[in-house]
Design a protein around this nucleic acid. Structure first.
Lengths: 366, 366
DNA sequence: TATAGTTAGTTAAACGTTTAAGCAGTTTGA
DNA sequence: TCAAACTGCTTAAACGTTTAACTAACTATA
């Protein structure tokens, strides 16, 4: 055994301990042929026995399964998928996995699909259109039986998604979905969510409600903006252009846009931010400037990321029921995959949200 | 088109809009045979042309690639993997994806492996031994070329991991790795990390340093405990059994153990928590009880989860350089996969950490 | 000018399954 | 009693590639 320092860059310092050892003598993997040889029957009979085909006797089935067990037989997915034309794999494309929303959706997709014998391949677009195209190519290459995706912010060109459809592979979109594609979609009612938030803020006595939103080109953010504007109208509050801002909804964007709002001659008394990360940025600015939340300015976020209930003050937010979105997306796929008919139903599932009122907008308990 | 209310349970309310439309007439996927037919050459020639085999003329190569493009050819991974015995897929097993640490590791594994033509399949064990075994079976079934894993907390029986090794499939462990398995491992120096933390707290003037740790049976937590104890000894601080607690390091555990520490006749003046989630729980309790952080009790976490810099006060924590861990894990796999020799080197890479001093333990700036 | 070497392919088998079709031998039924 | 039906298999082809081995047609060499 010897020690070896292999690198030193920045703060990272690694020690590698190397040991020479014999590579395992790799046993050739057992196949159905091996099982067939042991029992002196045909490989086809083994295959059928393992699939509980009624045309095989119970006696033979038992024997096959016993031998399979003994030989540590592991079916070869590649071969069966190639032959049957079904890979039993479903591709998932998300902008990123490290948001609670997406990882929760993924977890639930997996749960539902695993029960039906499917496994999932997760790919990340990192909000980049180019990467998203690569993800789609990867998944098509892997011969997935279906794709469940939430589009990258950047994406406007849908030709890659059309490619999926044109190959006859079921495509289900969630959260960020484009209407024009005519595919199954699972999401929430963004328009209505905005209405709920604005109503809540008005009930708290707010009169000048600002909105830090996402870009209009993304449908969900556009809907939130529309809902915000219509709610103001409905409650006879004046619309004010300077109170409506668009950005990418990162923490930094939230800080920047909040500062912009604070610089106004006539400051808002409430800010509805279309994403929790940006809401956090806004909160940091408000805290730094010692502005009382919620009495001076009330704050509402969107998405109920875990940290929204961890920061001080806790941030009122919209819970999107990510687990249900995941479940429904998976169910949509299963629905689709079971049908063999020439016509297919297009399903759009819209789930209701829940407003979680927390300290950042709860004037009555502050 | 018709509207249909499909469910109503709890707060979730979904509307399904159904549309009947014609299923796409599924074009049969193009294969190399189709390309061969167009050009009147053999399928083998097409395959070679696509792989830039030197025995094929540039002219033919160009023609093949052109036709492939025109016919929208997508290679069939199942067939090539089956034939070549290499699936170009690498399995990843993590306890969960919704921690920043793991999702960052995954992202970097993916980045490195994608460049080499590999794709990854992510599976989650949810900290359950049973689920972990299922993950392994799934991955073996999918014929992955290698497995990169971080073990579930629960796991003590290593026979499933032995199964991977016995099939000759490269196995690389990170973060939570068992020494006895004799496989490549990437991790940090937990022992030293504890020493760094204790030293920092002593420099802040702390004299009664408590440790809310993970369970000793998990190697990394055991090492953190050992490091903590040895550091106390080294700085001539008395060891005190009541200041050393073990738990699962959830938020709730953190709350509970912090309350336990506060109930002591002789309270600690610093608490080092072996995980950020538990540290957050501890912080909540301290805030609720209006205990001054860091002057009355200083707090240090572990893992640098994003929220540790978002809460009030911000929590001092250990950055594990997750991106580097991911990169190194991927590189270890690539290293392994390239070698065909009968002997193999066993590599353990230990990365250094960084202590990020924040408000929760920074007495000088408070 | 025979021989070896190179070029640019072709042929056919193989990877491990699944599955349609076939076929003995037995059982059933009118 | 004999056709029909059933039982429990076997045979062989197929899924889409890759690849070892072969070949035909040139080209270079001695």
């Amino acid at each position: 055994m010897f020690f070896l320092i292999i690198m030193y860059y920045g703060v990272i310092f690694a020690i590698t301990i190397k040991q020479i050892y014999k590579k395992n003598s790799i046993k050739k993997k057992t196949t159905i042929k091996d099982i067939a040889n042991v029992l002196n029957i045909s490989a086809a009979a083994v295959s059928k026995a393992l699939h509980n085909d009624p045309r095989i006797s119970d006696k033979t089935k038992k024997a096959v399964k016993q031998v399979a067990e003994n030989l540590n037989y592991q079916p070869n997915h590649l071969a069966s998928a190639l032959r049957s034309g079904k890979s039993k794999l479903v591709g998932v494309i998300v902008p990123r996995t490290n948001s609670n929303f997406f990882s929760s959706v993924i977890q639930n997709i997996e749960q539902v699909l695993n029960k039906e014998g499917y496994n999932i391949i997760i790919t990340q677009s990192n909000e980049s259109f180019k990467k998203e195209c690569e993800c789609i190519d990867t998944l098509l290459y892997t011969q997935v039986d279906g794709i469940i995706a939430s589009m990258a912010n950047q994406t406007t060109d849908l030709s890659y998604y059309e490619k999926i459809k044109s190959k006859g592979i079921p495509l289900i979109l969630f959260d960020r979905g484009e209407n024009d594609l005519n595919v199954d979609y699972i999401g929430i009612d963004d328009y209505n969510s905005s209405q709920i938030i604005v109503k809540h803020l008005i009930e708290q006595g707010c009169k000048r409600i600002a909105h830090i939103g996402g870009y209009k080109r993304t449908r969900i953010f556009n809907n939130r903006i529309k809902g915000y504007l219509d709610a103001l109208k409905k409650h006879h509050l004046p619309l004010n252009e300077e109170l409506l801002l668009e950005c990418d909804l990162t923490i930094e964007d939230g800080r920047e846009k909040m500062l912009q709002l604070l610089a106004l001659k006539n400051r808002p008394d409430a800010v509805y931010v279309a994403g929790d990360y940006a809401a956090l940025g806004a909160l940091q600015v408000l805290n730094e400037q010692k502005i009382n939340i919620p009495n001076e300015i009330a704050l509402v976020g969107f998405g109920n990321e875990p940290f929204s209930s961890m920061v001080t003050p806790t941030i009122t937010s919209i819970e999107q029921h990510s687990s249900e979105i995941g479940k429904q997306a998976a169910l949509s796929f299963l629905d689709y995959s079971k049908k063999e008919t020439i016509t297919q139903t297009l399903t759009k599932k819209i789930l209701d949200v829940a407003l979680l009122v927390r300290a950042s907008s709860d004037r009555k308990n502050s």
